[in-house]
Simulated scan of single mutants.
Amino acid sequence: MRVLGIESSCDETGVAIYDGDRGLLAHQLYSQVKMHAEFGGVVPELASRDHIRKLLPLTEAALKEAGLTRKDIDGVAYTAGPGLIGALMVGAAAARSMAMGLGVPAVGVHHMEGHLLAPMLEDEPPAYPFVALLVSGGHTLLVDVAAPGSYVILGESLDDAAGEAFDKTAKMMGLPYPGGPMLSRIAEKGDPDRFSFPRPMVDRPGMDFSFSGLKTAVRLEIARHAKDEKVDETDMADIASGFQQAVVETLAIKCRRALRATGYRRLVIAGGVSANRHLRQRLDEMAKQEKSRLYYPRSEFCTDNGAMIAYAGWLRLSHGQTADLALQVRPRWPLNELEALA
Results as ranks from 00 to 15, higher is better:
73 I>G: 11
167 D>R: 11
149 G>K: 06
185 R>C: 01
83 G>Y: 03
278 H>G: 02
112 M>T: 00
115 H>R: 01
196 S>A: 13
41 G>S: 02
210 S>H: 11
163 G>K: 05
270 A>C: 08
291 K>T: 07
24 L>R: 09
25 L>E: 05
99 A>P: 13
134 L>Y: 00
266 R>V: 03
161 A>H: 09
77 A>T: 13
74 D>E: 08
29 L>T: 07
89 M>K: 03
149 G>A: 12
291 K>S: 14
317 L>F: 05
242 G>P: 08
297 P>I: 00
340 A>I: 04
226 A>S: 15
26 A>P: 10
254 K>E: 02
275 A>M: 00
5 G>A: 13
163 G>P: 12
314 W>G: 05
96 R>N: 12
91 G>H: 11
140 T>C: 12
32 Q>C: 02
90 V>M: 08
14 G>Q: 04
325 L>Y: 04
157 S>K: 00
98 M>E: 07
174 G>Q: 00
312 A>C: 15
176 P>N: 07
273 V>Q: 05
219 R>A: 15
97 S>H: 00
290 E>Q: 01
163 G>S: 10
123 D>Q: 13
278 H>T: 14
300 E>H: 09
299 S>R: 14
160 D>P: 12
61 A>L: 09
220 L>H: 15
292 S>P: 07
255 C>F: 06
71 K>W: 01
342 A>D: 09
116 L>I: 11
101 G>F: 07
142 L>N: 01
306 G>S: 09
108 G>A: 03
246 A>G: 03
135 V>G: 02
203 D>S: 15
9 S>C: 10
171 K>F: 00
141 L>K: 01
258 A>W: 00
90 V>Y: 01
298 R>M: 06
78 Y>V: 10
308 M>V: 04
229 E>N: 09
70 R>V: 14
89 M>G: 05
159 D>P: 14
191 D>V: 06
90 V>C: 05
27 H>D: 15
29 L>Q: 00
